[in-house]
Design a protein around this nucleic acid. Structure first.
Lengths: 341, 341
DNA sequence: TTGAAAGCGCTAACAC
DNA sequence: GTGTTAGCGCTTTCAA
């Protein structure tokens, strides 16, 4: 059943059917109803490929992320998909893994599939070496590229970020004010966002003259699901004789490990040991005590990302970089701040 | 740059270019190289829409799930997407929510987009009322439909399930053998899989003459992320004077809540209170003690689902229902089983 | 081994 | 307000 069949049965031309299909106004109500009736009767739906061929678009957005099973990324994908669909766009999902070559391959594939735009979810798509980011510039030459949680200046590239620097900075200051001075920063990523967080920690500690040892910054290299390995990492640090009574984690998984570490060594939380996580995910409520965590307003970021993308697709001038503030959600792993005075 | 441009520059016809592009054998090596060189030089990639129009396929699979931010579903989507891509298929993701109307709408959309097959992730796509499942039958009239964690017999529908009944049944028996008899079953879904689980619990309890009260089966109705509400549900049950020393949860989130409940009321785990969760997700390792949980071999299920789908698309006869066994992963929330004698 | 040409089903510019 | 027709870029017979 195609547009010719319908036009024949309705006794009109294919152009008229096409007009009805696309909601053009210059069709008489009578003809319109006649055509709609036939369409309904035969349950006709237009062929998406043919339509794509003519319009050179299929209202589809490519969504790339390293690992959709990561709690945070999964949530981002969820919001993005919902909001795209609400605006008549489909999303083709590509889970690329963390390898650059795979990302480039996925990117080319999406371009070949003629997506109308590409969304890169997560900050691991931006690399230190300028040349490693060429694939983004190339893609942006064809379609708009949106970055969630990473900033990259280039034509046709739009970035939506949470102010990770300030979030971690302020959280660190908060913990210092609560009376903890030997605060370890525990992280597992050197992505764009990862660097900003680390910088926020460094700045806060330096302002208070507390960045006395490189060991305060602990990099965990391993699976983001292997809580046991993270806990072991901290125990190993303790075993070197290094002392710390607070920990700020770049991620709730790491914070969970910190809580486990404290329990293992009978450190009372938050009296002997304070913990702050990041993402304010489900995990922060799973532990006991529940974890104070930084909420980076993921849904807001996603909403704004889609709005910006739709604006760009609609031919409007849109901001190249948009920054939102995070918020510290206080729970049981931190002490009250000592009043200033 | 299209196939005409390439044919012109290579001094051959478009048919020859097309043959080279599609790896046809009846092209002389010399011509082939010549064409490939031009293609390379101009970085030409064929237009996916035009190809789709001709072939009536774009190597795309529609993936539907209620909520991609659910830990379990997110993981399933991850595996599915990876395995599809490895086999040259893209996936269009649709997060439908739990509402039937939205599911039907998404389904129609995927059909319209000419996907080659549809995968329904999660058991909430199958309804009790036969008429509510018509949308699946309709879709299957067009393309193969794959079900993950649900079974539904219909032409062109293929089901891959974990044996939830047996998993829960055996886990329940295990807990009974460990000396706990008043075991609550805590669940939040009446989906296909949800019913199978409940039946497994019922069977095990009845076999031991322990299903003495309807209150043993507790249905939680609320957000699957609201741990506090789940905990409150259990506390409310306790407040009615109902006594229970074990709990089997249909989901790790519920199990987390059970652990929190026990702590709140100073029940020592596992001596005074035993807990078994389901899915063996990251959450089961986040709690303290870590939660004994049923692993339903998600990756194996997904692998098999894709293999089956590819088989069907390849025109092969494939099994309509495939069942895998789950496995109980023992951690800190259960006691050792009393030896049988 | 290669080329010519007829679709695939739709959109949109143009004519009436 | 409606119809005619030329693409869109590819695949695939059918001839040569």
């Amino acid at each position: 059943m195609n547009i010719y069949d319908i036009s024949e049965k309705a006794g009109v031309s294919i152009a008229t059917v096409s007009r009805v299909l696309n909601g053009a106004t210059n069709v008489s109500e009578k003809t319109k109803q006649k055509v709609l009736a036939v369409i309904e009767q035969y349950e006709y739906t237009p062929n998406a490929f043919a339509r794509g061929l003519g319009l050179n678009t299929m209202n589809t957005i490519g969504v790339m992320c390293a690992d959709s099973s990561d709690l945070y990324l999964a949530k981002a994908i969820y919001y993005i998909e919902q909001k795209l669909r609400a605006n008549g766009y489909d999303s083709i999902l590509c889970c690329t893994g963390y390898d650059l070559a795979a990302k480039i391959k996925a990117m080319n594939l999406l371009i070949t599939k003629k997506v109308d735009g590409i969304i890169l979810v997560g900050s691991n798509f931006i690399y230190d070496r300028e040349s490693d980011n060429k694939y983004i510039i190339d893609a942006a030459a064809q379609v708009p590229v949106m970055l969630l949680n990473a900033a990259f200046e280039s034509p046709n590239v739009y970035s939506i970020v949470s102010d990770d620097f300030t979030s971690i900075h302020d959280a660190t200051v908060e913990m210092i004010r609560s009376g903890v001075e030997d605060i370890v920063y525990f992280y597992n990523s050197n992505s764009y966002s990862g660097k900003r967080k680390l910088a926020g920690y460094r700045a806060a500690m330096e302002e208070h003259g507390l960045l006395y040892d490189e060991r305060l910054m602990q990099f965990y290299q391993g699976s983001h699901e292997d809580i046991a390995a993270m806990t072991a990492h901290l125990t190993a640090l303790r075993d070197t004789g290094f002392s710390f009574h607070g920990l700020i984690a770049a991620d709730d998984n790491l914070a969970i490990a910190a809580v486990k570490y404290a329990k293992k060594h009978n450190l009372s939380i938050p009296d002997d040991f304070s913990v702050i996580g990041y993402n304010n995910s489900l995990l922060s409520c799973c532990s006991d005590p529940e974890i104070t965590s930084i909420d980076n307003k993921l849904e807001t970021l996603c909403q704004h990302l889609i709005t910006t993308l739709l604006g760009v697709l609609g031919g409007n001038e849109m901001p190249k970089i948009t920054v939102f503030n995070g918020e510290l959600v206080t729970r049981g792993t931190t002490r009250a701040t000592t009043p200033q005075g």
